[in-house]
Amino acid sequence: MELKLKPSESYLKQLSFFRVIIALFCIFQAMAIYPNLLELYGANGMINSEIGDAFISNVLIRPNIQNLYPYLSPYLSAELFSYLVFYIYVLFLLLLTVGYRVRLFSALSWLFHLILINSALHFNYGVEQFTKICLFYCVIMPTGYFAAISKKVINETKNDLIPFISVKILQFHLCIVYFFGGLGKIKGTHWLNGEAIWRSIEQPQFQQFDMSWIAAYPLVLKLLGLFVVFIEISYPIFVNIKKMRGIHLILVIILHLNIAIFMGLRYFAAIMILFNLSAYGYSYLSAFSHQFINRILSVMNKYKRILKNVFATPNIQNYD
């Protein structure tokens, strides 16, 4: 049996799309953190980094601002060093976005992201984990073949399995994420009796609007909780059935949009949506963008014809 593959070019485009949107996401996320950078990630931040060290003491290397600063302390203040690390990180991300020396700058962006997040372990939530995963994938996967200044030449369009395997890694990883996310939820009671939705929209940490009126509709809360569990557990099945993929992706995106709107976890929601679009939604986006561009071109052509007729030089005949 022969394994039918799309030409690797389309996978390479998909991976390049992944690189660009992840790098852009990281830039926006960095901008959001910037106003409280020193409190969160500073060499003299809010929480002593040694407390964080106790959490992961059993690793070989853990680069962070506090460990690196002593080497430069004679030349720079702690604040300046923290800002410097941050600015270099953003610079590397910009170079990664435009695709300059992609492998090198994805590795450096990943390294500087590690330095930043290791400097403030207590402040990191799910968004950091997924950013780290995505940047790591940018390092190991061929993400620099399209939308890149330093364009690489594709020389094994049909035989090279690496882009295909890379996309499958992204997809399989997401399947594990959602399946185990859903499985964890059914171990408790909150998601099955609807209290999870109530608590996540009514607790001050997440509350964005006053939604207390929803307590009068426990059945709605219960159905919403079960819907979330269903979406997550069934993700590996439906997203891998071609006919169901589109609908399931839309449902997952709706789920994350709700997390952004009602819980305020905008960046977490954004990276999950982008990860999904890169792994499973690229063909839809690509088809949509082609349709969109074609429609714009046809409208432009139509108006071009009309304008051409209006401004056409009249054929003046000389009757003399």
């Binding site: 690793v59 594990i176 994420v177 408790g188 998601w191």
Partner: peptide, 29 residues
Amino acid sequence: NKLYLTYCTLSGTDTKYGYFSPNISDDFD
């Protein structure tokens, strides 16, 4: 184990993806 944990930490695989599970925890200030 040290190698394994280092790889997990560096690659971001050191998670169980159990966000908001099994229950939604208490809120605090």
